[in-house]
Computed example of a mutant assay.
Amino acid sequence: MRIAVLGTGGGGRAHAARLSELGHDVTVGTRDPERTMARTEADMMGNPPYPVWLADHPGIALATFADAAASADLVINGIDGANAVRELTAIGEHLDGKVLIDYAVPYEYNPDIPHKWETPWGWMPRLDPVDTDSLGERIQRALPRTRVVKACVTQEQETVVDPAGVGDGDHTMFVAGDDADAKAVVTELLRSYGWRDVLDLGPLACSRGMEMYAHMHTAIGLALGGRFGVKVVR
């Protein structure tokens, strides 16, 4: 399958590398390929400069968001939450009818709020939207002809593409969306990653709970000091 991964951060790199290993034709999308390839310093999360990473993955192509999406059968959105709707809307014509997996969290960094939560990497971002809306729903409203599925948002992406790395893979992945066929496509992809327990939460409105879980995920991760999984016990 031809798959576009939009975003060059650690999450996008994890998906692109794994998908390439699985034999898919992978193109990573970025706002400005020339600028991306000119980077010489690590990003804010400490990931090496993108050209260094790409040199170790010669089977993966780099293109603009538009060109990557245009040639893809399926698109994975790893654009940061604050810019996702704008960037995806700009390439909407290339997303018509396609399945879009959205794992972005709607973080607002350096929020001006009275009760800040300090973490090892700075103040914890604020979620916006929250409670009565979600980024997944906003993307779907902006792109009514795209089949949006919220998934992979409740795990670090390194765990998403390698579930066996935590508890031998005995934990749960969640999906939500308004198109049953699109969710089936995403579930099949997740199973190829190694997920055995994929729970369909229902409509895309369930993105709200999935995105709001981000703060709990951070708290657990800080308490444990490493990667972990969440399992729904029936």
Rank of each mutant, 00 (worst) to 15 (best):
G29D: 02
G29E: 01
P33E: 05
E34H: 13
R35Y: 00
M37Y: 11
A42C: 09
P48I: 00
P48A: 00
P48Y: 00
V52M: 09
W53C: 08
A55Y: 01
D56N: 09
I60W: 08
I60R: 10
A61G: 05
L62C: 02
T64D: 01
F65A: 08
D67M: 08
A70F: 00
S71M: 10
A72I: 09
N77C: 08
N77P: 05
I79N: 08
I79Y: 04
I79G: 06
D80E: 15
G81I: 05
G81C: 06
A82H: 10
A82W: 08
A84L: 03
E87T: 11
L88E: 11
L88W: 04
I91K: 03
G92D: 07
G92S: 05
H94C: 09
D96F: 10
G97P: 05
K98H: 01
I101S: 01
D102H: 14
A104P: 07
V105A: 02
P106H: 02
P106S: 07
N110I: 06
I113C: 05
H115L: 14
K116S: 10
T119C: 06
T119G: 06
G122Y: 05
W123F: 14
M124A: 13
R126Q: 12
R126M: 11
R126C: 10
R126L: 14
L127K: 08
D128W: 10
D131Q: 07
